[in-house]
């Protein structure tokens, strides 16, 4: 069986946290699931969201950001737009989430 690979991208800060929850929702359905916070700096994450990200990582998913402040503040993996583009090529499903 081939596992699905899904990448969510978030460009609006009001959509990032719930979008990460959606990514976790697919990881528990046995998919490789990733989230990428782009363009926008988000607040420091609460404990519940940090736990969600840890769970996502335990299931071989991850959360990335193109914004250095998010990497520093919230422990996201750093990614450039070029690297993201290459990563998207491996995905079975690409989800530009919410609004920008």
């Amino acid at each position: 069986m081939e596992y699905k690979k899904v990448c969510f991208m978030y460009r609006h800060k009001d959509y990032a946290i719930d979008g990460i929850r959606s990514a976790l929702g697919l990881a528990v359905e046995n998919m490789y699931s990733y989230g990428v916070v782009m363009d926008t700096e988000i607040d420091e994450l609460d404990e519940l969201t940090q736990e969600s990200i840890e769970m996502l990582r335990d299931m071989e998913g991850d959360v990335y950001s193109t914004v250095p402040a998010n990497v520093e503040k919230n422990g996201f993996e750093a990614i450039t737009i070029e690297e993201l583009g290459e990563k998207l090529r491996e995905m079975t499903h690409i989800i530009p989430y919410g609004i920008k």
Binding site: K4, V6, R21, S22, G25, L26, E29, M31
Partner: peptide, 11 residues
Amino acid sequence: ATQAQHGIIIE
């Protein structure tokens, strides 16, 4: 429902 519905759509 839950996010499992999204999983069904994808699968």
